[in-house]
Design a protein around this nucleic acid. Structure first.
Length: 154
DNA sequence: GCCAACGTTGGC
DNA sequence: GCCAACGTTGGC
């Protein structure tokens, strides 16, 4: 059992969108970074915990809790010339990019990045490291526990 | 809109 | 295989 933080722009897919989706489950698409892809391909397992993070928005921060469902599969947007995520070098025979299904567990209060930065217990989070911009980052078990505790508070 | 930090590209 | 140039990310 591992834990992850996954960034989504709420203008694109918000925690509300996830909770409103059939089965509260959405396909995670559009990852175009090899490190993040490798996390999905090599390390994610069904049942892994996910912090659903809103990025590039007015209030960046953790907005919900989710979990990984099922196995990774080729991200269809890489083959679609009309998609912003189109990759001309990817073919169905040799896909480059993958997606995975993520199921929303619950929407939480917004745990803002500012509050996270101010918390010594979270200082080691990869998300908060200088220059960090990976859209998928591992979360340590103690960080996960700490954040779930914070999310219970008002 | 700014800009620091990082990843990718491509000429050599 | 180096590395300069360029594009992207994402908080502010």
């Amino acid at each position: 059992m591992a834990y992850w933080l996954m960034k989504s722009e709420p203008d694109d897919v918000s925690i509300d969108d996830v909770m409103a989706a059939p089965g509260q489950t959405i396909g995670w698409y559009g990852v175009r970074n090899y490190q993040a892809r490798n996390f999905m391909r090599d390390a994610m397992r069904p049942g892994d915990g996910v912090l659903f993070y809103h990025s590039s928005c007015a209030e960046p921060g953790v907005a919900g809790v989710a979990e990984i469902i099922g196995a990774p599969y080729p991200d269809a947007t890489q083959f679609d010339p009309n998609s912003p995520y189109f990759d001309p070098k990817a073919t169905p025979e040799a896909p480059r990019w993958i997606g995975i299904d993520v199921k929303g567990i619950r929407k939480t209060r917004l745990l803002g990045i500012k509050e996270m930065r101010a918390d010594p217990a979270l200082a080691q989070m990869q998300l908060l490291q200088k220059g960090s911009r990976l859209s998928i980052t591992p979360v340590q078990p103690e960080q996960w526990r700490h954040i779930l505790q914070l999310l219970k508070e008002a």
